[in-house]
Design a protein around this nucleic acid. Structure first.
Lengths: 133, 133
DNA sequence: ACGGTGCTTTACGTTGACGTAATCGAAACG
DNA sequence: CGTTTCGATTACGTCAACGTAAAGCACCGT
């Protein structure tokens, strides 16, 4: 209890995820909870990793990408080359996201254009409908 | 040939989709090619619909949503109420897209922030590496 | 002793939009 | 007349990220 480890439920409550998700992440080698008998105990390290995982998801990384990033992260200061690559991967991802955002913006503008048209049609239609009454 | 219909391959070339996709869309009742014997012949109407389908996809509509929109579109000027609903659906979608864009922007800013950090680490790391040589 | 609760594992189900054979029919070419 | 070449149908496979049973320990209080 006082050893700083959390049960699966405590983790779920703390991070607002389901037990299934945590087991899934363990199966995918994103988390490595220790075992006390049958039960999983999530260490401080697991919490740090989960935090990064959830942040990664918000960034739109896939779990596989996240795993790779975490692995590099773990190798840590061992080799700067790796860190450099991590940086490059993240920057690539940033570029992708910005492209995606730009496309989305185009689509939004496009759709807005369509809506202006639709509006005209509705207005004129309602007008002719009123006239017919 | 001169009747304005296209074979499946001509359609594929014209719109850059696979035969599978066109058959899939037919199965999902998005397209209604006529049959000459066994073969599908895509009419002008099918081309117009496919164009709208692909545009809809760019907007991020699901095929199901697109189908409903096309159906309403087909009912056409029959009832303005429907048109109104189409309009509302599209507007809802627009709102969703803008929210999505905003989230994406947040994530981008966030990631940029992280990258600034990462940069610092790399720089200082390379510095200490250089110093060690 | 027993029901309830929490945890475990194993494994199949889900969703969307197709991809990928496998097998078959018909038409066109040489 | 044989053989590539399209096209058709049917149906199983794929990918991501879990959801959802099903079935079984282990402990807890009563």
């Amino acid at each position: 209890m006082t050893d700083g480890t959390l049960t699966i439920r405590e983790m779920c409550d703390a991070f607002d995820v389901t037990p299934r998700t945590l087991r899934f992440y363990e199966a995918k080698e994103l988390l490595f909870p220790i075992r006390e008998g049958q039960k999983r105990l999530f260490t401080k390290r697991d919490r740090a990793r989960l935090k990064l995982i959830l942040r990664g998801k918000r960034f739109g990384f896939s779990l596989e990408e996240i795993r790779q990033l975490l692995d590099l992260y773990d190798m840590g200061d061992q080799q700067a080359t790796q860190l450099q690559r991590t940086y490059e991967v993240a920057q690539q991802r940033l570029q992708d996201m910005e492209e995606q955002r730009d496309e989305l913006n185009e689509a939004i503008d496009d759709l807005k254009e369509q809506l202006k048209w639709g509006e005209k049609i509705i207005v004129s239609f309602n007008a002719s409908k009123k006239a017919a009454e």
